[in-house]
Design a protein around this nucleic acid. Structure first.
Lengths: 193, 193
DNA sequence: ATCATTCTAGAACAATCGATAAAGAATCGG
DNA sequence: CCGATTCTTTATCGATTGTTCTAGAATGAT
């Protein structure tokens, strides 16, 4: 019973995600979000509770769609170091020159400092780290390590590298230099076999 | 002639810098800045023009004091790879657990996306990159490279790693893991000799 | 058709934002 | 002391913020 939803939730979340990536959480106003989602303020608050609720839904959409989609596309299970390399390189191919930042990076920075660690940021970082670790253990070198401690450490190192790349991309850094840095990193990772 | 300034500019910039590091540019209100600087709003606008002016001055103070200070302390000219290692490790020793982010990282993210690359961010990133490159060429391995192309690429890679570390620190990441990642990176860099 | 229910639309809310204006306080040269 | 100049304070501005309220439109069950 009750009136039927008129809006397409996917499209709404996609539009909201766009705005949050561009302007950050604080920088995105409800009016911005109205324009980007096609929803009027009243509907937003009815459907998502408040701004934080819409953001949470949009962040979930990002993790589900953009992040997991990129992982599955470039670094699926079994793709090993080569998959990871493609995953990293794919960060450079975003058409909008860093105007759409990575929500994880941006929110780790924007929400950081407070004692409360944002659960969606943590989940996303955890997924990345787990993926890195898994693909690393597929490589010959890391298999030999029984407890996988080396893979853990390398995964953390790659996680930092990954986040830093996104910072520099967002900052307008020249992409050819970053491409070289990525190639160097993975060439070195491969020759460690 | 005219009335004498009552406030200590260094103290004011330090207070403002504190707030901007904690809350970001958008998240820092004039009222916050009043409290942190001891200046009343009117004085702020008289002395710095507007919020962006105060921010610019505070950012300059950060680059001059915090950034250059850290470089000179941990990675002075001639300190080579060992200096760089100490520089990276020093990021983990900030007492306030990431509550004071790195202004460079935070602003690269917050101001990123716009076509205009913030000059202070660019200057700071440039200083870091130049420092990395210089210390790298002091190491035996890199000297042999005539044009120093390899040092350039490694400097960029380290710059990304550096920024990524700051993102993870800001995000509340466990520091012992990050310490291991840094040690691994520089151990590997040293064994490349 | 009626009713409860759910969604949408639009106006309006108090609070806060960055910024300004006006007036007093302090300094210096004359 | 005077007047010109510079700084500090206070009050206040219009705009925008996130949010709420209210009325209306659409649905399914009875």
């Amino acid at each position: 019973m009750g009136r039927t939803r008129e809006f397409d939730e996917e499209a709404v979340l996609k539009g909201a995600m766009h705005i949050f990536r561009k302007h950050g959480y604080q920088g995105a106003s409800i009016r911005d979000l109205e324009e980007a989602t096609g929803l009027k303020g009243g509907s937003i608050y009815h459907a998502f509770g408040d701004k934080a609720g819409l953001f949470d839904a949009a962040f979930g959409h990002y993790n589900r769609t953009v992040l997991e989609g990129r992982i599955e596309r470039f670094a699926p299970p079994g793709s090993g170091l080569k998959g990871l390399r493609e995953l990293f390189l794919s960060l450079l191919d975003e058409p909008d020159d860093g105007s759409l930042g990575c929500l994880i990076t941006n929110m780790a920075v924007e929400f950081g400092g407070g004692a409360d660690r944002h659960p969606r940021v943590e989940a996303a970082l955890g997924l990345l780290r787990t993926t890195f670790r898994s693909r690393l253990t597929e490589a010959s070198t890391f298999v030999r390590d029984a407890d996988g401690a080396k893979a853990d450490r390398t995964a953390t190192r790659l996680l930092a590298f990954y986040q830093g790349l996104l910072v520099l991309i967002r900052g307008g850094e020249d992409k050819s230099g970053l491409r070289q840095a990525i190639e160097d990193e993975f060439n070195q990772l491969e020759t460690m076999s």
